[in-house]
Design a protein around this nucleic acid. Structure first.
Lengths: 240, 240
DNA sequence: ACAAAAGTGTTCGGCTTACACCCATGA
DNA sequence: TCATGGGTGTAAGCCGAACACTTTTGT
């Protein structure tokens, strides 16, 4: 007890928000928002959105709040990534609890536009290709690397990729999301059978037309969680 | 920044140490060490070993240090489990970063004996059956529940169960470890082929005799990590 | 008509499961 | 010699990968 009373250790939260963006018609890529730091240390460098943990909020609430304050974004769920606490990861002693989430491109656009219109938006937020980042402040490059590893890992055994998609989507959309995450092509025929067998999708009666044969639209089955998070307390995970 | 300057948030670390114990010849069970609290809050209740994070040590170093101070144990590796930070999980505001590890029963005995002999051992440490714990201090019941979920999960796709076993062991030993973790019986024949195919075991020329046909002893293949932890920084994970 | 994407069928090989069977030892 | 666990063989079934094939649209 006494040791910690003497020391000065602060708790920060950061978020890695991943989305899928299509630049000039090319194949989509994973992108994430970065914030330019306006104070030392690392003033002027890019960093993950985040801030200090307030005494009256949970870790996840702090992650959601600081993310909204800096970027205007509000993901539908946040998952804890890791707690980083090396002694020299910052000039002062900071333990950073990092959260991550997937965000749909259409939500990003809507939320960003609303944030801009509100007049409170700082002009120091930029979306970056996750695979070609500049050198970030603190250990944030490593944190992003770890988040991408987790994403690819999780794509293998859960349905996380649906987090990139709007409520209604075609199987080609979903397959493209997986291909973007995993970095390789998937067989359309086998992909169809696999997701159909998994039972996570609800077919609708609508079709998307416009090019070639119309494709059936599907919706998420909200009864099935995006990813099994185990017996964590609701108090620990819920964002109010 | 200002919010956190005002507030008083302390960082603690706790550890869930799991081992496999065989009571009175019965089937082995998962057990973990608990410490009886000597001060408020929850004075007199059982809690996970842990303590405050010191300003000059990393999270993992703090976990190893506080574990050694309270129980005398020194696992060969520690893995971060989760950061718990609900506002009311403690009367004062505490963020607990929890680590977990598997420990071999023979190491537990040896380290505990050495700790006792050193004269510095407090007599308030007890080993508990993980499936039938009393009500613990803080949210520690939930933390243990989550650790057990992670263990069972991980046993499915990695070789964690070897963490329960001494350097040399029979396939029956290894199978028993998996059966204890997973709570179900495994086919000896198929189990043998699976672990042989995985290439994580090195057969020795020794056999364990004493009952029926002698069984070949195996050793861990230390070239293969117990569990893939992704691209986490060595600074973040290493215990010096 | 033709290109291209949606969607279906089929085969193959690897892996898991179930279980029969042989082997080697202690008592 | 017999009970018991160690260890091998083998066939059925499931699932993913590969790919041929049919269907339906836009041009």
């Amino acid at each position: 007890m006494t040791r910690s009373e003497r020391g000065r250790i602060r708790v920060a939260v950061s978020t890695v928000i991943l989305t899928m963006r299509r630049d000039r018609g090319a194949t989509p890529r994973v992108a994430l928002p970065l914030v330019r730091r306006t104070r030392d240390p690392f003033r002027g460098d890019w960093a993950l959105p985040g801030g200090w943990l307030d005494e009256q909020e949970s870790l996840e609430e702090a992650a959601a709040r600081t993310l909204a304050e800096t970027t205007g974004l509000a993901p539908s769920y946040l998952e804890q990534l890791y707690a980083f606490g090396a002694v020299r990861r910052s000039p002062s002693r900071v333990v950073s609890v990092v959260y991550w989430a997937l965000l749909r491109a259409d939500e990003v656009d809507a939320q960003s536009a609303a944030f801009e219109a509100s007049g409170t938006a700082p002009d120091n937020v930029a979306w970056n290709d996750a695979e070609s980042l500049p050198t970030l402040a603190f250990d944030h490059n490593r944190i992003v690397e770890y988040a991408l590893w987790r994403l690819r890992n999780k794509a293998g055994y859960s349905r996380v990729a649906q987090g990139f998609l709007p409520p209604a989507f075609t199987l080609a959309d979903l397959r493209e999301a997986y291909e973007t995450i995993l970095g390789r092509r998937l067989d359309p025929a086998n992909f169809r059978r696999q997701v159909e067998a998994a039972g996570n999708l609800i077919p609708t009666d609508e079709f998307r037309t416009g090019s070639h044969r119309p494709a059936r639209l599907y919706r998420h089955n909200t009864d099935v969680a995006l990813a099994d998070r185990g017996p964590l307390s609701p108090e620990e995970t819920r964002t109010p």
